[in-house]
Design a protein around this nucleic acid. Sequence first.
DNA 1: AATGAAATTTAAACCAT
DNA 2: ATGGTTTAAATTTCATT
Lengths: 175, 175
Amino acid sequence: MKTDLDDIDRRLIAILQNDGRRSFKEISEETGIPASSVRYRVQRLEESGTLQIVGVADPLRIGFDRLALVGLKCEMGKARLVCEELSKLPETSYVVLTTGPFDVMVEVVCRDVAHYTEFLHDRLPKQDGIIGAETFFVLEAYKLAYGWGVGDAPADSTGDAGDEPSAEPEGAPTT
Amino acid sequence: MKTDLDDIDRRLIAILQNDGRRSFKEISEETGIPASSVRYRVQRLEESGTLQIVGVADPLRIGFDRLALVGLKCEMGKARLVCEELSKLPETSYVVLTTGPFDVMVEVVCRDVAHYTEFLHDRLPKQDGIIGAETFFVLEAYKLAYGWGVGDAPADSTGDAGDEPSAEPEGAPTT
DNA sequence: AATGAAATTTAAACCAT
DNA sequence: ATGGTTTAAATTTCATT
């Protein structure tokens, strides 16, 4: 549960955010840190849950054509319960508790409109605590970045290599 | 710009969604597909933008505490331009064109409230085509999944290994 | 906890089908 | 597009500081 990263950790994360398969040796050459140390650090980051190296597939290209963002209004005091329950559903890929006009925002990934309809009209109404839902269908995805923040992280004393901070599938939208 | 994946592609994606650094040789043994073919396929998936292998850092553990979803109303015909431009900003991690009350939805990751304020009040207004913005601050993130859909993809004739479909940082909310 | 050097494993390039 | 083979490179292990 360590939360304190040093500049080396941040540099390693920044590099891996761009390319999760960069070899430790290349990272070593790029940073001047010994390869075995790079590996040691990365392993620690992974084990602590701070960093995950994963394959990310563009849902719009793999047959899951219907992405929707859904804003939910919940009964007072029920929003967290709603979050917990919706997190368990396979269709949800993003569930957060928010301030503002909606209490909960959810991203739902469906194969097609029928799949979404079933989700919205059969599944959601069964969930206790939800008052209303507003659907935002995703027409085009311009940026789906999973590399957060480290690229322009607080003061990098190790000397920044000027890497791009985030990883997008492509410059152009995917439809 | 191929969009048609076969079952082999889907299996490779499913495996890499769980662990982006699995060696091609291991994948080869697991699937029975020759290692050179595995590499060839993965390379194609990456080059076509279908799959990305990236390091994902938990923003709430690396000092980027302020996540916000922002719904934007745009001038008629300007929404795509807005998407393109906002995608270029380092603070945005998610930019999509939507139907519904908002034309564009954006996820913004900031270090602190001051950083977000600067983004919302200094940077956004300079962008042509935006009429209005509504902020949903993320209080708690319950699910941040990067593995989309493939886990329960349409009929897998190659014989599914029963891997977990998605990768969440944690079951409980991160605050 | 971090590093260096060894042995082992893996990936990349190539070529044939 | 696939599969095999070889060469070069990277990872892992383990001893050392």
